[in-house]
Design a protein around this nucleic acid. Structure first.
Lengths: 188, 188
DNA sequence: GTCTATAGGCAGATAGAC
DNA sequence: GTCTATCTGCCTATAGAC
């Protein structure tokens, strides 16, 4: 793969991720992606045999982006600081959140209704996050079962607040909930 | 409108709601809805000028179904019982929740990414629920600001757990979170 | 009000020249 | 590897007979 080819592939996945977040997967056409990436439509198929394959690449990009985010949080000195960094990140971009929702949740929600391969791929979107959060609670001395329940509780709260903010078009729910959750973490 | 016409319209909206929940709005074709309702495709357009109009009717059906649910919860003797009935209802049908997600949240998530009229209609899906929950907390003696925050917190938790269950394809997250939330209500 | 047939347009995918 | 042109099928919507 040439340098230019890698570059094009990257541009396609970046544009795909952005457009899918804004418009949803089904409403985003390969023509949209091609135009945004400044790649001719026919050439898209050199990099991705099908639209589904591009969808898979977008999912993988999300997965590795969040992996990389978590690795920066892992540099924080203690579990509470790491959890608060996670919570804070969920409202890092409040206007985008209000306009398009959580990128992971909205994509998962859409793809899980398709039957087939993409629906299965979408499952990866939350599994790692849940495991990472659980690990932080373990390090706070919680039992295995308790840590799992707390992780589910925290991720639920963050994602649910994103749903409300997206539905209403205002960031206030997510911002308010994030504040509450950060305070809650302090009390543990 | 004849009896038969009313019946057909009802069948179309019912089938539309079910199919949209299972497949999503964009992937559900009017041919799908027509076939499920045993109404010839061309005749669908007598009842709904456009697909968007059918979508609006589906939203309105959800809104009034949940209104009706809340009115049965209002018959409960006290706010805690009413809130627990709400929480319980969110996991009434765990397998369906795991397979297709929360009907309201997944539809809202999808439609809010369209620009235009349906995106605006989708906003109605959560506004009433939030107001009703807030009222229950007020009746538990919470201040106005506090009641609002608690309502956001509760609805977030329920919807977030639905996201996790839908994403993973297992009801366990929603069921576990519902149990936790019911216990939490008791402590208030 | 009901239904058949079909127009019209769009999006995924391919052919094939360069 | 790149790009133009185009095929194919599907889906919304309409025309028009009954």
């Amino acid at each position: 793969m040439s340098l230019s080819a890698r570059d094009k592939r990257t541009r396609l996945v970046d544009a795909g991720a952005r457009l899918v977040h804004q418009q949803g997967f089904h409403r985003t056409t390969l023509a949209d992606v091609a135009e945004t990436s400044r790649v001719p439509l026919g050439n898209v198929y050199y990099y991705f045999k099908t639209k589904e394959a591009l969808g898979e690449a977008v999912i993988e990009q999300y997965v590795s982006q969040y992996e990389s985010l978590r690795s920066t949080w892992d540099a924080k000195p203690n579990p509470k600081a790491r959890l608060k960094a996670f919570i804070q990140a969920s409202v890092d971009n409040p206007e985008v959140l209000a306009r398009s929702g959580c990128p992971l949740a909205t994509l998962s929600s859409e793809l899980r209704k398709d039957n087939g391969h993409l629906a299965d791929c979408a499952t990866r979107l939350f599994a790692d996050a849940l495991a990472w959060i659980e690990k932080q609670f373990r390090q706070l001395g919680k039992s295995k079962g308790k840590a799992r329940a707390l992780a589910v509780h925290l991720l639920s709260a963050v994602e649910g607040a994103a749903v409300l903010s997206h539905n209403s078009g205002t960031p206030k729910y997510a911002v308010q909930e994030a504040k509450l959750l950060r305070e809650w973490i302090e009390t543990l």
